[in-house]
C-alpha cells in the first residue's frame, strides 16, 4: 500500500489564515474542541478527559504531544471497554481517531498518516452504517423513521414541521406507538391515521440517509483523487449540514469534520474554511431549537 507524500499548504510561510493553517493542527484542535463542547465519559473519566482537553488550550504545545493523545486513546478506550454494550458508535470512533492521532504524531509523515486514517475511518464507518440499513427490513420499509419521528424527542419539532402534523395528531400517534403491550389482545385501540405527508417524510428520510451514507462511504474508500473520491469533502459536508440539523448528535458530527479536515491537502485548500463553518453550524443546530421556532412561527402565522 502506498500514500502520496504530502506537501505543506500553499503559502504556508505567509501570515496565518484558515487556508494556511496546518491541517493536522486544525484537525487536532477541532477534536479537542469537540471533547470540550460535548464532554464524554462517566463521573470518573469525564473530568480527566476534559482536563486533558482543556490543558491543550492553556499549553498549546501539548497539541502535538503524542503522550497526551496516547493518554486520550487509553481513556476513550477504557470508556468503551467498561460499558461496551452502552457506548455509542461515536465513542468507538473517537477511540480509533485518538489512536490514529497518536500514531500520526509518532510517524515520519503525520499529515499523510492522519489523512489516510481520517479517510479510512470515515469510509468504513459509513460503509457499515449503510450495510446495517440495507440489512434491516424495518428500515427499508420506512418504519424506522415513522417510529423514531414519533418517539424520539429530538425529532419532535421537525416531525411536526416537515411531516405536517398538528400538535394533537402528533400526540395521538406518539401515545399510540408508545403503548406498552407484551401480550397481544383483541381489545387494542384503533390506530390513528398517519397523514400522507408524514409517510412521505419518513420515506424521503429513509432513502436520503442510506443514499448519502452509501455514496459517502464509496467516495472515502475509493482510490484517492480518482472518480468519486474527488467529491468526498463535498459529500461529507452535505451529510453533516443536513443530518445534524435533524439528528442532534453533535459529537459525532464534529468528530467526522475533524477527520475530514485532516485530508485537506493543497488541492483542497479552500475546504478547511467550509469544515469550520460546518462545525459552527452543528453547534447552532445543537443549541438553537430552530424547528420549534419555525413551528411556532408558522402556527402563529
Amino acid at each position: 500500500m502506498t500514500h502520496e507524500r504530502t506537501e505543506p499548504p500553499r503559502g504556508s510561510d505567509d501570515a496565518p489564515s484558515i487556508a494556511n493553517l496546518d491541517v493536522v493542527a486544525l484537525a487536532l484542535r477541532l477534536t479537542v474542541l469537540a471533547l470540550m463542547l460535548r464532554p464524554i465519559g462517566d463521573w470518573m473519566l469525564r473530568p480527566t478527559i476534559l482536563g486533558l482537553a482543556a490543558s491543550v488550550l492553556i499549553f498549546p504545545s501539548l497539541l502535538l504531544n503524542p503522550k497526551l493523545w496516547g493518554t486520550l486513546t487509553a481513556l476513550t478506550g477504557l470508556r468503551v471497554a467498561v460499558e461496551w454494550q452502552l457506548a455509542d458508535n461515536h465513542a468507538y470512533l473517537l477511540c480509533y481517531w485518538c489512536l490514529a492521532v497518536t500514531l500520526a504524531l509518532v510517524s515520519r509523515d503525520p499529515r499523510a498518516c492522519l489523512a489516510l486514517n481520517g479517510r479510512l475511518l470515515i469510509g468504513w464507518a459509513f460503509a457499515f452504517a449503510t450495510l446495517w440499513k440495507l440489512l434491516s427490513p424495518d428500515y427499508l420499509d420506512g418504519r424506522f423513521f415513522r417510529v423514531t419521528l414519533l418517539i424520539d424527542p429530538r425529532f419532535a419539532g421537525f416531525a411536526q414541521l416537515a411531516g405536517g402534523l398538528a400538535p394533537e395528531q402528533f400526540e395521538d400517534l406518539s401515545v399510540f406507538v408508545r403503548q406498552h403491550i407484551d401480550v397481544p389482545s383483541l381489545d387494542l385501540p384503533q390506530p390513528p391515521v398517519e397523514p400522507q405527508r408524514f409517510r412521505w417524510l419518513a420515506w424521503m428520510l429513509t432513502w436520503w440517509t442510506v443514499g448519502i451514507e452509501g455514496i459517502t462511504a464509496a467516495a472515502f474508500l475509493w482510490p484517492v483523487d480518482r472518480g468519486i473520491s474527488r467529491l468526498r469533502h463535498i459529500l461529507l459536508l452535505v451529510f453533516c449540514a443536513t443530518t445534524y440539523a435533524v439528528a442532534t448528535v453533535a459529537g459525532f458530527g464534529w468528530l467526522l469534520l475533524a477527520m475530514g479536515v485532516a485530508q485537506c491537502d493543497v488541492r483542497y485548500h479552500l475546504f478547511p474554511s467550509w469544515y469550520l463553518l460546518a462545525f459552527g453550524l452543528i453547534l447552532l443546530y445543537r443549541d438553537l431549537p430552530w424547528a420549534e421556532w419555525l413551528l411556532r412561527f408558522f402556527s402563529v402565522g
Binding site: Y92, Y96, A112
Partner: peptide, 26 residues
C-alpha cells in the same frame, strides 16, 4: 508529489474498526 509505502501500523485504527464492527454483526 512522491509515492511512498505506508507503514503497516498506519492501518491499525481502521483494521480495529472493521474487526469490532464485523464481530458486532456476528
Amino acid at each position: 508529489m512522491t509515492l511512498m509505502r505506508s507503514p503497516w501500523f498506519w492501518y491499525v485504527p481502521s483494521l480495529l474498526l472493521c474487526l469490532v464492527a464485523a464481530n458486532q454483526q456476528r
